[in-house]
Amino acid sequence: MSLKASTLKVGDTYSERLVEDLKRTQIVQYAGASGDYNPVHTDEIFATKVAGFPSTFAHGMLTMGMTGRMLTNYVGDGRLTKYGVRFTRQVFPGDDLDAKATVKEIRQEGGQYFVDLTVETFNQNGEMVISGSATARIDP
């Protein structure tokens, strides 16, 4: 179920709900798996009293990872050739996130078709938390 250059159109979109009511436990789970134990993400006392944030917040890479799940569900396994993001806003426990990919360009390079995508993730207030792009190999 790979994307096809013959049926894709510029402007096509794909979106997924990434998470509802993000739990602190999931942030802890991400810290453990990734190895990023910065206490600003998991230690409410440190995050608020020492670092001066309103609460703990998710690793940017957790949001990028969840957004990557939307991308691989869309383009297929092992198809991504590029994926990059800017973290535009912090993600806090309790947030709901939705991610969207939009087809920007369909092109051919050395006999291989590629799709360039705009990637955006929003929180429950419609504020963008990730702004990025991705490229994937697609079928003819």
Partner: peptide, 23 residues
């Protein structure tokens, strides 16, 4: 609130990840 005896010089906890790109 912190396990450091010396207050951090605003280093750790002030650094944020702004962008990440993979090829």
């Amino acid at each position: 609130p912190t396990g450091m005896t010396q207050p951090s010089e605003g280093g750790v906890g002030r650094g944020l990840h702004a962008e990440q790109h993979f090829e």
